[in-house]
Design a protein around this nucleic acid. Structure first.
Lengths: 206, 206, 206, 206
DNA sequence: AATGAATGAGAGTTCATTCAT
DNA sequence: TATGAATGAACTCTCATTCAT
């Protein structure tokens, strides 16, 4: 009854500690997966005691779900920003770069998401089926419209979106592999250039 | 030790049971990750008792490593088959299709690999640093050669390879998401067509 | 980690429970040896749950090592108390009686030690090589000095020390056998007298 | 029914294999204790398969008991050889040297015995209570007789026997400790001389 | 708001022993 | 005689969670 999560007005300490916990959990979950992570690791990382963690969250699963929920919003934001009235190619390239930037700036989030989907999205299916599906359908319609107007070379819009996700998130999710193969190179700059070339060539109307 | 794994000549039963175990383990590991998987699950799936599993393998880790080792060979095979003397675009398209086919036929292997790399490749680093790195360097050289000869549009060969991995494996690794968004469609056929278009447009010399 | 063993300031409960565990473990280890002892036995004996034991110690080995470390100090104390300025024979007889008393009062400690050395002292070698060796060398020098001064009959001082250890610890370590052969007799009183005679006759200068 | 241990006429192979097993078991039991030893170790050491071991013996315990039984005879032999009609001091010194020699030649047997008695002699009590007790009583009577005749300095005969056991077996049972403290010295020769001195001084009638 | 203490449920692993041949 | 295969029971240890303060 007197637990933080049910209180009406979270105090400053509560907000700070919840943030600490979620940040620590993001670290741990993204690195070891849900089952591989332990509350002990999260508690140590957060600088709190284990029971104190459970004062703020109902359990391990609760922390994970909270993270996933928060993630979805940020994850979909760039897609929402595609402007149907903008220049098609420019809009798409902007999206690609946004996604690539996110891979660099938020690799933990990317890996958390990848982990979840890789395991069949047991805790995320609802989100995918509602928020995501709708947004993708809308975006696909926009792209199809552009194509119909002859402003973009014809392609399957959904697979186009998949390819953007795949190629950009790859740099976060498969970082361990990329690092081994690209020792010393400026991966991100080259990737940005490469993807710009890729999508320009594929989508330009000649 | 009087255990199967140290015997010199594997009997028929041994071969059969080792295969059963590895197959069951592939199921379980690819779905739940290393830490999330339990020997109990593997044993049940394999139709063997838990101690019997340990009669054939030294432990959970041994099974996982065996799986990973077997995987690497199959994983690299398609890359090896790129023929420096073949037609550049055709060779690359063939590679793309091979990889896409593997995503459809061996999604568990793809996810096992993704899981491992996602967590920093703790058990695979050596493989990546030797076998894979060398092969990628060689292939990059071949592609660079083609580009120098004007037979392929200029592009960073390593990022090209990454993009092929990313776009093809995506259909296995993010299948849960793809299924939600592509309900009812023939994902594989469309993906093949899309990727053919993508790489043709990007790499053709006009 | 939020475990007791890493806490900085042991609470009263911690001290009490650690003591309980060590006492129970001394019972069990001294009777069954390291491998023969189980955490279950120790837990039952200590009146605690098995995981609770592991809340206080890192594992079975940790308990054993802690016991051995504590033992060494008490074990060497009597030897340290030999006074180079005292009367040689009296000093040695005092040592013999101290050791014999310890066999009676701390038979579990004696057996724990015997068990460890019997198996090659895998966990005690370091202690033996540093603390013990030095102390024995020093004591041997003292005894040699006494002999050189003609205050003690000549003997090899190290073998003298061995014989004292052997004859006194025998009453603890081989108690099962002694009891069978000495039914009803006051073993300790007779042993004290016997050893007094033995060492007096051997070491007196006529 | 057709098991080796119930067969009437053991073949040569049977005898050889039983010997092999017992020898291997002596190694392993004396080093790790009963609980610390595994059938796997014994089997490997003996060069036989684990089930084959169990063809020759009913189980781990059976092997152990067999060893212990065999041991007792050899163990008591020297004591039996004390000749009541011989010279008292010479007889006892001869016994001391025999025992010391056995410590050097059969340290495994000594440790096996020590292990057993240390743990309360759960499998040996009967032997101790019959064979040993009787023999010790007889020997004590002989010694008492010698003392009464003034041919040996007065001393408690049972504790004398204990001291001989303790001092001689010490070199086998506590070998790990002795080695640390006597690096490089000829332990056995010095021990023989020391014990000769000890018992001569203690028992000589002046 | 926080934590030291405790635990039930399970995880991976070992091992004496049995089965089947 | 001999062994590859299999297992039940037990063991050490982990961990999310709860209790008590």
């Amino acid at each position: 009854m007197t637990q933080a999560r049910t209180a009406k007005k979270p105090t400053r300490i509560q907000l700070r500690n919840r943030k600490r916990i979620l940040d620590a959990a993001l670290d741990v979950f993204s690195q070891h997966g849900f089952r591989g992570a332990t509350l002990d690791q999260i508690a140590t990382q957060a600088g709190l005691s284990k029971p104190n963690i459970l004062y703020y969250f109902e359990g391990k699963e609760d922390i994970h779900v909270t993270l996933l929920n928060q993630l979805m919003d940020a994850w979909l934001a760039p897609l929402r920003e595609i402007d149907p009235k903008g220049d098609p190619l420019r809009e798409i390239l902007r999206y690609v770069h946004r996604k690539l930037d996110m891979s660099r700036e938020f690799p933990r989030e990317s890996r958390l998401f990848a982990n979840e989907v890789l395991q069949g999205a047991p805790r995320m299916r609802p989100h995918l089926e509602t928020g995501l599906k709708e947004l993708v359908d809308d975006t696909a319609a926009v792209i199809d419209g552009w194509i119909a107007q002859g402003r973009l070379a014809p392609v399957d819009p959904r697979h186009l979106i998949f390819s953007i996700w795949a190629t950009t998130q790859h740099y976060a999710d498969f970082d361990a592999q990329v690092q081994v193969l690209m020792e010393g190179r400026d991966v991100h700059r080259d990737a940005a250039e490469f993807l710009e070339t890729l999508y320009t060539r594929m989508l330009s109307v000649r």
